[in-house]
Amino acid sequence: MQELQLEYLASVSSDSQLYATTPPAEVSRANSPRVSVLVMWTDRRGQEVQIEVRSDEPMLRPRTHCEHVAEKLRGLLQRESAA
């Protein structure tokens, strides 16, 4: 999550899901949108996940910060699966 500049929040995460968001200091310092990532395990063995990337940006705006984070996350996952 550090590579995505997101902060893991243990208080709202559990054994079956992980939650991370843009740190409040980053949002106020850079006046950037808050991006949240929710990773949920979809099988009991922990081999498949569903990932949601959301932000407080307008949905119809092109090239949002949310899209940037999602693309970066996709690239990280592809690198890991190829390794």
Rank of each mutant, 00 (worst) to 15 (best):
A83R: 12
Q47M: 13
L60E: 04
P33K: 02
S32P: 10
T22Q: 02
E48F: 15
P58R: 02
A30D: 11
Y8A: 12
A25D: 10
S28G: 04
R63G: 00
R63A: 00
E57F: 00
V35Q: 05
R44F: 11
R74V: 11
W41I: 14
P62N: 03
V37I: 06
A20D: 03
V49D: 05
V69C: 04
C66D: 00
A25C: 13
R29F: 15
D56F: 00
S14L: 06
Y19F: 13
E67D: 11
R63F: 00
V27M: 08
L9S: 14
S32F: 09
S16N: 12
E80K: 06
H68D: 14
R79I: 12
L76G: 08
I51G: 01
L38Q: 02
M59A: 14
E26Y: 08
A83V: 11
V27W: 03
A30C: 14
D43L: 05
D56E: 03
E48D: 13
L76C: 07
E52K: 09
M1Q: 10
S32G: 12
L77I: 08
R61S: 03
Y8D: 15
A20Q: 03
Q17S: 08
L6K: 04
V12P: 04
E52Q: 09
Q50S: 15
P33E: 03
P24N: 05
S14T: 15
D43F: 06
E7A: 10
A20C: 11
H68E: 14
P33I: 01
E71V: 13
V35N: 06
R63K: 01
P33G: 06
P33H: 02
L77R: 06
Q2G: 06
S28H: 09
G46A: 04
S28M: 11
R45W: 12
V49Y: 04
A82W: 15
T21S: 07
L38S: 02
P23F: 11
R54W: 00
A83S: 13
S14Y: 05
Q50V: 09
E7I: 07
R44D: 15
S55H: 01
R44S: 15
A10W: 09
E7M: 15
E26S: 07
C66M: 03
